[in-house]
Amino acid sequence: MALTFPRLNPIVFKEENILYTEKYNTPFIQKWDKGDYIVFQAHYGGSIARGEVEASIVDDNLNVVLQFDSTIININNWYRVIFRGSCNLPDGIYRVKLYSTAGKFTFYSNCIQIGTFPESLLLTYTCKTNKFDCIFRDSEYAYFFVLRVDGGVKSSDISYNSDDVIYTSQDRVVYLLDSIPYTVRKYTFGNSYGLPSWLADKINRLLSCDSILINGVKVVKNDGAKLEVIGSDAYPYVGLNIELLRQEEGYSEGLYFDEEEMMQGGMTVEMVDSTPSYSISAPRTGRIHIETFENTFN
């Protein structure tokens, strides 16, 4: 019997029920907006039968408030299951329960708070191929993870740069042959409480995915950028900084968009830092048709 849990999943599981301890003795509780979907994967085989592993969201009293949908993919009798559940629930503290219907095991996730968090960052991440022990594609769908975390970009953490090609003649006359401007934004992940080590590890791992969106904007790491850890030995939580680039900054500002036409193409438009951001509407639900993925992400 074997049950494994990819580290790219946005939540963690613990065998014992520590809901009370986490809720009242630990400052950190993971935030999820009511419009989000919790998407995670698990792998199992051996004596664990197909469909035996299920997941649900439970409340303070461990009452089931939502049962996860699941997609099971069989690879050489090793089952890869993708769980998807909507956070459209009353505001409150919840946990995810992962269990065997045959009673072999039960795991509870970290505490999650469902509400409305407009100032937080929504990280959507996937890969174009199956890697990191995760299923990102099957014959019909591309699959995404989503993770919400406090953070943002300070005005003092924005730098304005350009790649210049300069020619200097023998007479020391200087010419600008070409110049491409770009903006580097240093993102901060975590609020004044900071992040636990398990969540910092997940953010580091997701930044290795080849398709990352933050609040609907496609971003990539700046060349050579690494996560910077902000913390102290006397405090268990940390903050994170990293320099990111928008994949396409653009040279024009949009003034008008036909939202109906955009939505028909699987796209939405929202203002991010006073700039129109094109985003895919489907990833928040955890999956998108391959054809739409190819047309919008590539």
Rank of each mutant, 00 (worst) to 15 (best):
R246W: 07
D233R: 08
G151E: 12
N74Q: 11
K31G: 03
T126Y: 05
V173S: 02
T296P: 06
T101K: 14
D69H: 07
K226D: 15
S274G: 03
G45T: 05
N25Q: 11
V173R: 05
V269M: 15
L8K: 06
S179G: 08
P181M: 04
L227V: 11
S281F: 01
Y251Q: 15
G45S: 09
D33S: 09
P27S: 02
G45N: 05
N63V: 00
D150H: 09
D138F: 04
I48N: 09
C111S: 13
P27N: 12
I72K: 07
S277C: 15
T296D: 04
N9A: 09
N25C: 08
T183C: 10
S277E: 10
M267H: 08
G286E: 02
E243P: 02
I82A: 10
T116E: 13
G35H: 12
S109K: 12
I114E: 06
G231F: 03
E243H: 01
P90S: 11
P90N: 09
S179W: 07
Y256Q: 00
G35A: 10
C127S: 11
Q264M: 07
L62F: 13
R7V: 08
L244Y: 03
D233I: 12
K221D: 04
Y175A: 04
D164W: 06
V174E: 13
N204Q: 13
L19N: 08
W198M: 03
D60K: 11
F145K: 05
M1R: 11
T106N: 10
I11D: 03
V217N: 04
K186T: 15
R185Y: 07
K202V: 15
L255C: 00
N215E: 03
P118N: 02
V173L: 02
K34C: 05
F105L: 04
M267A: 02
A225Y: 06
F189N: 05
R84G: 00
I72Q: 14
V220I: 14
P236N: 02
V149S: 06
N191H: 06
Y24D: 09
N298W: 10
T116N: 15
L147H: 04
V146N: 15
D201A: 13
G216L: 01
E243A: 13
N63P: 00
T116V: 08
I29L: 04
K97A: 04
